[in-house]
Structure formats: structure tokens, C-alpha cells
Design a protein around this nucleic acid. Structure first.
Length: 563
DNA sequence: AGTTTCGGCGCC
DNA sequence: AAAGGGCGCCGAAACT
């Protein structure tokens, strides 16, 4: 039995499969099967399945209870390779890749499917173009050569494998859903917002707060209309540029307190209220659609339901099944640890080589014990802070950890100059990302550094420099956030393998945090598996470094009790 | 009337 | 203390 097999889905839903030799060519006859589940189930020894799209195949496998060990997602690979080659805007479908191979007309990518509340995962993506097995293999073979030509072939291969694993994990999480107690959610809403009135208007507590705001201004003011609020403040003799909380909370006016409370509750009501519950929770599970690799940095997004923005108060509704537990695990100071690993800064690697609080260690060395200042300085360096105390603190950071700061400074300069910037494994930042002019929109050809339209902007005083600065900040953050996403993918892949023979299910992933839902008896084993997966991911991603990747782990029945 | 952008805030 | 990175979501406002 060959290690790798290719699987091509036909228009009618049937599949063709063939074993692959080491050269990536078929090492045996092509066989036809009625459906992918049958094809995979009858070949349990295959180590890796090569297919066009995990999002297309995996749901059908999961529905049939079939698990694959690993896969190679041709379209995910195409996206990563195009980015690496600085060809960000080009269509990334397998059909487009084939057309480029044959120098034919390249079909544009099908429009993205938008979220539909409560929609089941479709068996097929709409407008998916199915490639015959031979064509799929031709694209795959060329992709192997493109991996060879990349800056670090072995890292790029690892990135593609990790992204493919991420696609599998996402498909599995989409099927599982996050355990969700609608009754608990309703209790939370009632205690925060009060009764709902007939007709769908504001609940009692919001109506009361709106009254308080109006009373404080001496006239009817709608707190949900920023323009109305700004005008009301102006009439009270107070000039505010916006109604953002950080701007108005220092204002001395009786309307401020109820206004801020209103905004907080209004947010819960519109984004996670009763209609959200109606739309996104079915059969005791919240099912956002996780999309691996949904952002340029490699972070995931969810399509629908705001799956990665569940407010703390609402987490009360995330409750394990009877007899089960949630293992909630959160990476400790992930970003500075990743910065230590990618910059190889000796001092930062040394503090990141301990499991103890990294910000405290940094502060002991560079900030005479002030942890808050140290944390601010580190995050300022990673985010590209431009003003305030951060700059002063940055100087101290630069003295103690010169290579780490130089690493992000170099990335920022590259971004400003329009050069390509990469994560540790090779995910590549689009050159125009972070620009404020909208030219970075997906699907649009990217400006080369010397593009005339870009230069033209330099004639407008102040414009080009602002733009370049934004690109610099983006690139600076990209190398850290993106390399952290590289590591997180490896973590997920390792954890998925570790859980393969358990009842446990991965139900949530949010940048540096995972939740595993498992029988009570498995919880401690799962917690240990997460820690092991984190260290393994660190070694696989960054090679041999002293950097550790500790997790804070909580075994709870309710997500809200995790912190 | 339908679609896109904006303002504000949730999460990391 | 200041307002730097990545996202998604909603209603209202601003458009076609």
C-alpha cells in the first residue's frame, strides 16, 4: 500500500483514486468508487490523501464516520505558494493552477459563500470546479517543484502540511460544534438586559438606561446613534470627536455612566442576544463555521455567529455534556515566546526558556520589576507603537534584547519599502497589506514596490508616508502574529493525532486557546496531551531552541469558570 | 429597494 | 497610559 493516494471528486459525487509513487506519479491503476467515504474506509493504511479541497471532502467523510490520518489540500497549497511567490492576487483554485500550467485563460475564483444562519455544511461548495484525477496530479506535481524552489523548502512543505491539517481540524470542529446551553444563555440575557417587550424593541434595562441618558441631557437622546450623542454633548458645552468609550469615559457629565453601560449591554443584545441564539444554536451546539487560514497572517476566522468573539459573560452558556468536561487551554505569553524563537535573541530566548511569567522575567531584566511596563513595551514593539510611554520603554527593550527588536524593525522596514515579509514557515504577507487606500483588496493585482500608481501618491504631502507607515506596522506585526499562527497549526495537528483514539473532541480554537470536550475520566490525559503537543509544535516549527510553550489549563464544566 | 460603508465594540 | 496589529458583527448611514 502506497503512502500517499490521490482522490479526485467527480461531478456526480463519485471519486477516482490512485496510489502515488515517490515521484508523485500514479503507482498503480486508477480506481473508481461511489463516494469518498467508501474510498477512504477501504484503504485504512494510507498515510496521506491528496485532494483538491478538504472543505469539500472532509464533511462527507465525517458524515460517514470515516477518519483520515493526514491530507494534502491542493487549493490551500496553491494559496500559500502564490503568496510565497509574491503573486497574491491571482486566482487560487485548482482549476486556475491548471490553467496557469497549460498557459491557458485563468478562470477567476468563484465568489465566496456568505454565512447563512443555521445552515448545514453543504455537501458541495457551490460552483466548485472538479478536476479530473490526471489534472489534479499535474497541479500537485508542479506544486512539489514550487515547494522545492521556495526560500526554505522543508519549512514550506511543513507549512502546507500544517495548513492541510488545519483544514481537517476545522472540518471536524464544524461538525462537532461547541456545547451550548440555550437555557443558560437566556438566563444570562434576562439578568443583564431584563424582560423583552412585545414587538421586538429594546429590552427593559436598555430602555431604562436610554431614559437615564435622555434625562441627563435634558432632552430625548438615542444612545445608539453616535451623531445624536455627539450633538447632545456639544449642546452641553462638551466637544467630543466620537462616542468611543475611551474618549468619553473621562468626560465629566452625568450622561456618561448610563451611556457606557448602555453601549456595553446594547452590544450583548445585538451581537449575542435572543436572535443570535435563534440563528446559531441548534441541538445544544453553537456551530460557527471555522475557516482555517482565513486571514493573511494565517489566523483562523469564523464565518457566522462571531465564533471568535464570544463575550466573557456569554461563556456561561458553554457547558459540557453530563459526565463530560471542557479542557480549556490557553498559551501563556505566546507572542513574545514566538518572537524569541524567530529572532533567536539570546536574552529573550533565555527568559522564554522558562515556564514562568515571561513579562515578569523581562521586567526583572529591563524594567526594574515593573511587569506592566514590560508587557506594554513588548506589545508595543510587536504592534509598532508610535507614541507615548511605549517609545521610552522600547529603548530599554532594545538594549536588553537587541536581536528581537531588530527582527521586528527589519520587518517593518521591509513592509514600508514594499518588500515581501514572511512568517517562520513561509506564509507571506501581501506587499500592500496594511495600506489605508484599499489597494490591498483580495483579487486585485498587487502594486509592485515601484508601481507608478504607488509613487504617484508621494506627490500628495503626508499621504505616502502615512501609507508606508501603516504597511510597516502591518509587516512588523505579521511576522510575529503569523509565526504564532504557524506554531498554533502544528499544535492543532499534533493534538488531533493525540486525541485520535479517544472519545475527546476538539470543539474550539481561538488563536492561542483550545477547548477539548471529553469524558471526565479523560480530562487529565487530554490536558497532558495539550502540553506535549505544544512543545512538539515548538520543536517542529522553530527547530532546536530553548523556548518553551507553556499552557494554562483548566478542567471545567463551564467555559466561564476557566479563568 | 437593495447594497456597501461606517461607527462602535466584542475577542485575541 | 494611550489609542499600534488581526478579525466579525450589527444597525444606521450613505451610496447606487
Amino acid at each position: 500500500m502506497a503512502d500517499r493516494w490521490v482522490l479526485a471528486v467527480a461531478e456526480d459525487g463519485g471519486v477516482e483514486v490512485a496510489p502515488l509513487g515517490l515521484d508523485g506519479l500514479p503507482a498503480g491503476p486508477v480506481r473508481r468508487e461511489a463516494d469518498p467515504a467508501q474510498a477512504v474506509r477501504s484503504r485504512p493504511d494510507v498515510a496521506r490523501w491528496v485532494w483538491r479541497s478538504t472543505a469539500e471532502v472532509a464533511p462527507r467523510l465525517l458524515a460517514a464516520g470515516v477518519r483520515v490520518e493526514r491530507c494534502y489540500d491542493v487549493e490551500a497549497a496553491e494559496t500559500l505558494l502564490l503568496g510565497h511567490e509574491g503573486r497574491y492576487g491571482e486566482p487560487r483554485s485548482a482549476a486556475a493552477a491548471l490553467a496557469r500550467l497549460h498557459r491557458g485563460p485563468v478562470p477567476p475564483d468563484p465568489p465566496q459563500r456568505s454565512a447563512e444562519p443555521g445552515a448545514q455544511s453543504p455537501l458541495f461548495e457551490p460552483q466548485a470546479v472538479h478536476l479530473p484525477l490526471d489534472d489534479l496530479l499535474a497541479v500537485y506535481a508542479e506544486q512539489q517543484r514550487r515547494h522545492d524552489r521556495s526560500a526554505h523548502p522543508e519549512r514550506m512543505r511543513l507549512l502546507t502540511a500544517a495548513e492541510s491539517a488545519g483544514m481537517l481540524v476545522a472540518a471536524e470542529m464544524n461538525r462537532a460544534g461547541l456545547p451550548w446551553r440555550a437555557d443558560v444563555h437566556r438566563e444570562v440575557l434576562h439578568s443583564l438586559l431584563g424582560e423583552r417587550y412585545a414587538g421586538g424593541g429594546e429590552p427593559r434595562r436598555l430602555a431604562e438606561l436610554a431614559e437615564e441618558v435622555s434625562a441627563a441631557f435634558g432632552r430625548r437622546v438615542r444612545p445608539d446613534l453616535p451623531a445624536d450623542v455627539v450633538k447632545a454633548f456639544a449642546q452641553a458645552g462638551i466637544r467630543v470627536g466620537s462616542t468611543r468609550r475611551w474618549e468619553i469615559e473621562s468626560v465629566d457629565h452625568p450622561a456618561v455612566k448610563p451611556l457606557i453601560e448602555y453601549k456595553k449591554l446594547y452590544r450583548i443584545w445585538v451581537a449575542h442576544g435572543w436572535s443570535w441564539l435563534q440563528d446559531w444554536v441548534r441541538d445544544g451546539r453553537f456551530r460557527p463555521e471555522f475557516l482555517a487560514g482565513g486571514t493573511v497572517t494565517g489566523r483562523w476566522v469564523t464565518n457566522g455567529g462571531g465564533g471568535l468573539q464570544i463575550p466573557k459573560v456569554i461563556r456561561r452558556a458553554v457547558v459540557a455534556d453530563p459526565g463530560w468536561r471542557l479542557v480549556v487551554a490557553d498559551a501563556d505569553q505566546m507572542e513574545p515566546r514566538v518572537l524569541a524563537a524567530i529572532s533567536r535573541d539570546p536574552g529573550l530566548m533565555e527568559v522564554a526558556g522558562r515556564e514562568s511569567d515571561l513579562y515578569q522575567s523581562v521586567s526583572d531584566r529591563a524594567f526594574s520589576g515593573d511587569r506592566a511596563q514590560a508587557k506594554l513595551a513588548v506589545l508595543g514593539a510587536v504592534y509598532g507603537q508610535t507614541s507615548g510611554d511605549g517609545l521610552k520603554n522600547l529603548a530599554a527593550l532594545r538594549r536588553r534584547f537587541p536581536r528581537a527588536v531588530a527582527y521586528v524593525d527589519d520587518a517593518a522596514r521591509a513592509g514600508e519599502e514594499g518588500r515581501l515579509v514572511r512568517t517562520w514557515l513561509g506564509r507571506t504577507c501581501p506587499p500592500a497589506a496594511g495600506a489605508a487606500d484599499g489597494a490591498e483588496e483580495a483579487g486585485m493585482p498587487q502594486d509592485a514596490p515601484s508601481d507608478p500608481s504607488d509613487r504617484a501618491q508621494e506627490w500628495v504631502p503626508g499621504y505616502a508616508s502615512t501609507n508606508a507607515r501603516a504597511r510597516g506596522r502591518f509587516a512588523r506585526n505579521f511576522v510575529v502574529q503569523g509565526s504564532a499562527a504557524d506554531w498554533a497549526l502544528l499544535l492543532l495537528a499534533a493534538l488531533r493525532q493525540a486525541l485520535a483514539d479517544k472519545a475527546a473532541e476538539l470543539v474550539f480554537f481561538q488563536h492561542d486557546e483550545v477547548i477539548v470536550h471529553c469524558p471526565r475520566e479523560e480530562a487529565d490525559t487530554v490536558a497532558a496531551a495539550i502540553r506535549e503537543a505544544a512543545e512538539l509544535a515548538g520543536r517542529l516549527t522553530f527547530g532546536r531552541t530553548p523556548v518553551r510553550f507553556p499552557f494554562t489549563t483548566a478542567v471545567v464544566e463551564c467555559y466561564a469558570d476557566a479563568k
